[in-house]
Protein backbone atom coordinates (compact mmCIF):
# COMPACT_ATOMS: atom_id res chain seq x y z
CA UNK A 1 0.00 0.00 0.00
CA UNK A 2 1.60 3.27 -1.08
CA UNK A 3 2.31 5.88 1.55
CA UNK A 4 -0.10 8.78 1.82
CA UNK A 5 1.21 12.01 0.42
CA UNK A 6 -0.72 13.94 2.98
CA UNK A 7 -2.87 13.31 5.98
CA UNK A 8 -5.35 15.79 4.60
CA UNK A 9 -6.08 14.18 1.27
CA UNK A 10 -6.02 10.60 0.20
CA UNK A 11 -3.83 9.66 -2.74
CA UNK A 12 -6.73 8.83 -5.00
CA UNK A 13 -8.30 12.20 -4.25
CA UNK A 14 -5.04 13.89 -5.08
CA UNK A 15 -4.90 11.95 -8.34
CA UNK A 16 -8.36 13.06 -9.30
CA UNK A 17 -7.70 16.65 -8.27
CA UNK A 18 -4.67 16.84 -10.54
CA UNK A 19 -7.00 16.59 -13.51
CA UNK A 20 -9.23 19.42 -12.31
CA UNK A 21 -8.81 23.15 -12.08
CA UNK A 22 -10.67 26.02 -10.51
CA UNK A 23 -12.97 27.76 -12.96
CA UNK A 24 -12.54 31.49 -12.70
CA UNK A 25 -15.16 33.71 -14.23
CA UNK A 26 -13.46 37.06 -13.97
CA UNK A 27 -10.06 36.09 -15.35
CA UNK A 28 -8.19 38.40 -13.05
CA UNK A 29 -4.65 37.71 -14.18
CA UNK A 30 -1.21 39.08 -13.65
CA UNK A 31 1.38 40.17 -16.13
CA UNK A 32 3.39 37.01 -15.75
CA UNK A 33 2.78 34.43 -18.39
CA UNK A 34 0.79 31.61 -17.20
CA UNK A 35 -1.86 29.18 -18.16
CA UNK A 36 -4.90 31.42 -17.70
CA UNK A 37 -6.26 33.23 -20.71
CA UNK A 38 -6.21 36.95 -20.10
CA UNK A 39 -8.88 39.30 -21.40
CA UNK A 40 -6.45 41.30 -23.39
CA UNK A 41 -5.03 40.01 -26.62
CA UNK A 42 -1.93 38.04 -26.48
CA UNK A 43 0.28 35.58 -28.21
CA UNK A 44 -1.14 32.32 -27.25
CA UNK A 45 -2.37 29.80 -29.75
CA UNK A 46 -6.00 30.33 -28.78
CA UNK A 47 -7.82 32.35 -31.47
CA UNK A 48 -9.85 35.23 -30.12
CA UNK A 49 -11.11 37.51 -32.97
CA UNK A 50 -10.41 39.45 -36.20
CA UNK A 51 -9.90 43.16 -36.63
CA UNK A 52 -9.07 45.46 -39.48
CA UNK A 53 -5.48 45.90 -40.31
CA UNK A 54 -3.98 49.17 -39.22
CA UNK A 55 -0.71 50.53 -40.38
CA UNK A 56 2.05 49.43 -38.13
CA UNK A 57 0.54 46.08 -37.27
CA UNK A 58 2.76 43.10 -37.31
CA UNK A 59 2.40 41.60 -40.74
CA UNK A 60 2.81 38.10 -39.25
CA UNK A 61 -0.68 38.27 -37.81
CA UNK A 62 -2.42 39.15 -41.11
CA UNK A 63 -4.84 36.40 -42.08
CA UNK A 64 -3.76 35.74 -45.64
CA UNK A 65 -6.55 33.34 -46.37
CA UNK A 66 -9.13 36.02 -45.68
CA UNK A 67 -7.10 38.55 -47.66
CA UNK A 68 -7.14 36.23 -50.72
CA UNK A 69 -10.91 35.89 -50.55
CA UNK A 70 -11.91 39.38 -49.49
CA UNK A 71 -8.99 41.44 -50.86
CA UNK A 72 -8.85 43.26 -47.57
CA UNK A 73 -6.24 42.66 -44.83
CA UNK A 74 -7.47 41.44 -41.41
CA UNK A 75 -5.43 40.90 -38.34
CA UNK A 76 -5.97 37.70 -36.27
CA UNK A 77 -6.17 38.27 -32.56
CA UNK A 78 -5.09 35.65 -29.97
CA UNK A 79 -5.71 35.31 -26.22
CA UNK A 80 -2.99 36.17 -23.84
CA UNK A 81 -2.21 33.43 -21.26
CA UNK A 82 -1.30 34.92 -17.93
CA UNK A 83 -0.82 33.70 -14.46
CA UNK A 84 -3.62 33.83 -11.81
CA UNK A 85 -2.95 34.23 -8.12
CA UNK A 86 -4.90 31.93 -5.86
CA UNK A 87 -5.31 33.20 -2.36
CA UNK A 88 -6.82 30.76 0.09
CA UNK A 89 -8.06 32.28 3.34
CA UNK A 90 -8.84 29.86 6.13
CA UNK A 91 -10.98 31.12 8.96
CA UNK A 92 -9.07 30.27 12.11
CA UNK A 93 -11.51 31.68 14.60
CA UNK A 94 -12.74 29.64 17.52
CA UNK A 95 -16.10 29.11 15.93
CA UNK A 96 -14.32 26.86 13.44
CA UNK A 97 -13.30 24.51 16.24
CA UNK A 98 -16.64 22.80 16.22
CA UNK A 99 -17.66 19.61 14.56
CA UNK A 100 -14.59 19.32 12.33
CA UNK A 101 -15.09 22.59 10.50
CA UNK A 102 -11.42 23.60 10.75
CA UNK A 103 -10.31 20.20 9.60
CA UNK A 104 -12.67 20.41 6.64
CA UNK A 105 -11.31 23.89 5.85
CA UNK A 106 -7.77 22.54 5.84
CA UNK A 107 -8.77 19.67 3.56
CA UNK A 108 -10.49 22.01 1.12
CA UNK A 109 -7.56 24.39 1.22
CA UNK A 110 -5.28 21.49 0.36
CA UNK A 111 -7.55 20.53 -2.52
CA UNK A 112 -7.77 24.05 -3.95
CA UNK A 113 -4.07 24.59 -3.42
CA UNK A 114 -3.24 21.36 -5.14
CA UNK A 115 -5.34 22.29 -8.17
CA UNK A 116 -3.65 25.68 -8.33
CA UNK A 117 -0.14 24.28 -8.08
CA UNK A 118 -0.90 21.58 -10.59
CA UNK A 119 -1.77 24.28 -13.14
CA UNK A 120 1.25 26.37 -12.30
CA UNK A 121 -0.74 29.19 -10.70
CA UNK A 122 0.59 31.23 -7.89
CA UNK A 123 -0.77 30.11 -4.54
CA UNK A 124 -0.67 31.67 -1.16
CA UNK A 125 -2.58 30.66 1.95
CA UNK A 126 -3.35 32.61 5.07
CA UNK A 127 -4.98 31.50 8.25
CA UNK A 128 -7.27 34.22 9.58
CA UNK A 129 -6.35 34.05 13.21
CA UNK A 130 -4.34 35.98 15.72
CA UNK A 131 -1.27 33.99 14.75
CA UNK A 132 -1.79 34.84 11.08
CA UNK A 133 0.20 31.90 9.71
CA UNK A 134 0.67 32.25 5.98
CA UNK A 135 2.10 30.29 3.16
CA UNK A 136 4.04 32.67 0.97
CA UNK A 137 3.25 32.66 -2.72
CA UNK A 138 4.53 29.57 -4.38
CA UNK A 139 4.13 27.93 -7.73
CA UNK A 140 4.42 24.60 -9.42
CA UNK A 141 4.22 20.98 -8.34
CA UNK A 142 7.43 21.35 -6.45
CA UNK A 143 5.56 23.40 -3.86
CA UNK A 144 3.10 20.64 -3.15
CA UNK A 145 4.99 19.33 -0.14
CA UNK A 146 5.31 22.87 1.15
CA UNK A 147 1.56 23.24 0.81
CA UNK A 148 0.76 20.03 2.64
CA UNK A 149 3.22 20.60 5.44
CA UNK A 150 1.89 24.12 5.98
CA UNK A 151 -1.69 23.00 6.21
CA UNK A 152 -0.85 20.03 8.41
CA UNK A 153 0.89 22.35 10.83
CA UNK A 154 -2.10 24.64 11.17
CA UNK A 155 -3.77 24.39 14.55
CA UNK A 156 -7.11 25.41 15.88
CA UNK A 157 -7.12 28.90 17.27
CA UNK A 158 -7.26 29.87 20.90
CA UNK A 159 -7.97 33.50 20.28
CA UNK A 160 -10.30 35.13 17.84
CA UNK A 161 -10.31 38.26 15.81
CA UNK A 162 -13.31 39.33 13.77
CA UNK A 163 -13.42 37.79 10.33
CA UNK A 164 -13.73 41.09 8.50
CA UNK A 165 -10.70 42.50 10.28
CA UNK A 166 -8.73 39.35 9.65
CA UNK A 167 -9.49 39.56 5.91
CA UNK A 168 -8.34 43.15 5.73
CA UNK A 169 -5.18 42.20 7.62
CA UNK A 170 -4.54 39.39 5.17
CA UNK A 171 -4.83 41.71 2.20
CA UNK A 172 -2.02 43.81 3.57
CA UNK A 173 0.34 40.90 2.89
CA UNK A 174 -1.09 40.09 -0.49
CA UNK A 175 -0.26 41.31 -3.93
CA UNK A 176 -1.63 40.09 -7.20
CA UNK A 177 -4.97 39.60 -8.89
CA UNK A 178 -6.70 36.35 -9.08
CA UNK A 179 -9.06 34.29 -6.99
CA UNK A 180 -9.60 34.34 -3.28
CA UNK A 181 -11.04 31.20 -1.81
CA UNK A 182 -12.59 31.99 1.54
CA UNK A 183 -13.11 28.98 3.79
CA UNK A 184 -15.15 29.98 6.80
CA UNK A 185 -18.43 29.50 8.61
CA UNK A 186 -19.05 33.23 8.13
CA UNK A 187 -20.68 33.38 11.57
CA UNK A 188 -19.60 36.88 12.42
CA UNK A 189 -21.48 39.68 14.05
CA UNK A 190 -19.71 42.26 11.91
CA UNK A 191 -20.55 43.07 8.33
CA UNK A 192 -18.45 41.50 5.64
CA UNK A 193 -19.33 44.12 3.04
CA UNK A 194 -16.23 46.17 3.58
CA UNK A 195 -13.96 43.14 3.64
CA UNK A 196 -15.48 41.80 0.44
CA UNK A 197 -15.15 45.20 -1.19
CA UNK A 198 -11.51 45.17 -0.29
CA UNK A 199 -11.07 41.73 -1.80
CA UNK A 200 -12.81 42.78 -4.99
CA UNK A 201 -10.87 45.96 -5.27
CA UNK A 202 -7.68 43.95 -4.98
CA UNK A 203 -8.72 42.17 -8.14
CA UNK A 204 -9.70 38.98 -6.43
CA UNK A 205 -12.68 36.97 -7.50
CA UNK A 206 -14.40 35.82 -4.35
CA UNK A 207 -15.20 32.18 -3.95
CA UNK A 208 -16.80 31.92 -0.51
CA UNK A 209 -17.31 28.41 0.84
CA UNK A 210 -19.31 28.26 4.03
CA UNK A 211 -18.53 25.28 6.24
CA UNK A 212 -21.14 24.43 8.87
CA UNK A 213 -21.50 21.63 11.34
CA UNK A 214 -24.59 19.40 11.42
CA UNK A 215 -26.01 20.99 14.57
CA UNK A 216 -25.67 24.42 13.03
CA UNK A 217 -27.64 23.26 10.05
CA UNK A 218 -30.26 21.33 12.05
CA UNK A 219 -30.08 22.04 15.79
CA UNK A 220 -31.43 19.12 17.80
CA UNK A 221 -32.26 20.80 21.06
CA UNK A 222 -35.33 21.10 23.22
CA UNK A 223 -36.17 22.71 26.50
CA UNK A 224 -34.48 25.77 28.00
CA UNK A 225 -30.79 26.38 27.40
CA UNK A 226 -28.22 29.06 27.93
CA UNK A 227 -26.24 29.26 24.74
CA UNK A 228 -22.65 30.46 25.08
CA UNK A 229 -20.85 32.01 22.15
CA UNK A 230 -17.56 30.21 21.70
CA UNK A 231 -15.82 33.31 20.40
CA UNK A 232 -17.24 36.14 22.42
CA UNK A 233 -18.39 34.07 25.40
CA UNK A 234 -21.61 35.96 25.41
CA UNK A 235 -24.68 34.10 26.56
CA UNK A 236 -28.17 33.88 25.24
CA UNK A 237 -31.13 32.19 26.96
CA UNK A 238 -33.19 30.20 24.57
CA UNK A 239 -36.39 28.26 25.17
CA UNK A 240 -36.59 26.08 22.17
CA UNK A 241 -39.88 25.08 20.71
CA UNK A 242 -40.82 23.67 17.36
CA UNK A 243 -41.52 27.11 15.89
CA UNK A 244 -38.26 28.54 17.15
CA UNK A 245 -36.33 25.90 15.29
CA UNK A 246 -38.33 26.67 12.20
CA UNK A 247 -37.46 30.34 12.55
CA UNK A 248 -33.83 29.32 12.96
CA UNK A 249 -33.95 27.51 9.65
CA UNK A 250 -35.57 30.52 8.04
CA UNK A 251 -32.83 32.79 9.30
CA UNK A 252 -30.07 30.41 8.33
CA UNK A 253 -31.46 30.26 4.79
CA UNK A 254 -31.78 34.04 4.77
CA UNK A 255 -28.21 34.40 5.96
CA UNK A 256 -27.03 32.16 3.17
CA UNK A 257 -28.93 34.26 0.66
CA UNK A 258 -27.42 37.38 2.15
CA UNK A 259 -23.95 35.96 1.79
CA UNK A 260 -24.67 34.76 -1.71
CA UNK A 261 -25.92 38.20 -2.72
CA UNK A 262 -22.89 39.79 -1.14
CA UNK A 263 -20.62 37.60 -3.25
CA UNK A 264 -22.60 37.82 -6.45
CA UNK A 265 -22.70 41.58 -6.34
CA UNK A 266 -18.91 41.38 -6.48
CA UNK A 267 -18.85 38.79 -9.24
CA UNK A 268 -18.19 36.16 -6.67
CA UNK A 269 -19.79 32.93 -5.72
CA UNK A 270 -21.04 31.42 -2.49
CA UNK A 271 -21.68 27.86 -1.46
CA UNK A 272 -22.65 26.32 1.88
CA UNK A 273 -21.46 22.85 2.80
CA UNK A 274 -21.71 20.61 5.79
CA UNK A 275 -18.92 18.77 7.53
CA UNK A 276 -21.16 15.74 7.46
CA UNK A 277 -20.83 15.51 3.69
CA UNK A 278 -17.82 13.46 2.63
CA UNK A 279 -14.95 15.46 1.20
CA UNK A 280 -15.09 13.54 -2.08
CA UNK A 281 -18.75 14.46 -2.45
CA UNK A 282 -18.04 18.12 -1.85
CA UNK A 283 -15.13 18.20 -4.27
CA UNK A 284 -16.22 15.98 -7.08
CA UNK A 285 -19.94 16.42 -6.91
CA UNK A 286 -21.06 19.64 -5.26
CA UNK A 287 -18.31 21.93 -6.47
CA UNK A 288 -18.35 20.44 -9.96
CA UNK A 289 -22.10 20.78 -10.22
CA UNK A 290 -21.83 24.38 -9.11
CA UNK A 291 -19.14 24.98 -11.73
CA UNK A 292 -16.47 25.86 -9.26
CA UNK A 293 -14.07 23.32 -10.61
CA UNK A 294 -13.96 21.42 -13.85
Amino acid sequence: MPAQLSSLLKNDVIARLERLRVQSRCHFTNRFTGSHLARKGGTSTDFADFRDYAPGDDMRFVDWNSFSRLHRPYIKLFHEEEITHFLVLIDGSRSMNFEGKFQRARELAAAFGLMALRHTERLSIQCLSTRAERLPPCRGRASMNKLFSFLERLEEADETIPLEAAIENALQHHAGRGVVILLSDFLSFGTLRRAFNALYSHGLEILALQILGPTEIDPDITSDFRLVDAELEETLDVSVSGDLLRFYQDHRAAYEEEMRALCQSRSGRFLATSTVDPLETVLFDTLRRQGWIA
Binding site: F225, R226, L227, A230, H251
Partner: peptide
Protein backbone atom coordinates in the same frame (compact mmCIF):
# COMPACT_ATOMS: atom_id res chain seq x y z
CA UNK B 1 -33.92 29.39 39.62
CA UNK B 2 -34.10 28.57 35.96
CA UNK B 3 -30.61 27.22 35.95
CA UNK B 4 -30.48 26.56 32.31
CA UNK B 5 -28.01 24.05 31.00
CA UNK B 6 -25.11 25.85 29.31
CA UNK B 7 -24.45 24.86 25.77
CA UNK B 8 -21.46 26.31 23.99
CA UNK B 9 -22.19 27.01 20.37
CA UNK B 10 -19.86 28.22 17.61
CA UNK B 11 -21.62 31.52 17.32
CA UNK B 12 -24.76 33.23 18.45
CA UNK B 13 -25.12 35.10 15.18
CA UNK B 14 -28.04 33.10 13.94
CA UNK B 15 -29.66 32.69 17.36
CA UNK B 16 -29.59 36.45 17.91
CA UNK B 17 -31.30 36.96 14.61
CA UNK B 18 -33.88 34.37 15.53
CA UNK B 19 -34.65 35.95 18.87
CA UNK B 20 -34.84 39.40 17.31
CA UNK B 21 -37.46 38.12 14.93
CA UNK B 22 -40.84 39.72 15.48
CA UNK B 23 -42.51 36.42 15.02
CA UNK B 24 -40.58 34.98 17.94
Amino acid sequence: KLKRPRVTVPSLVLWRRVLDDQRV
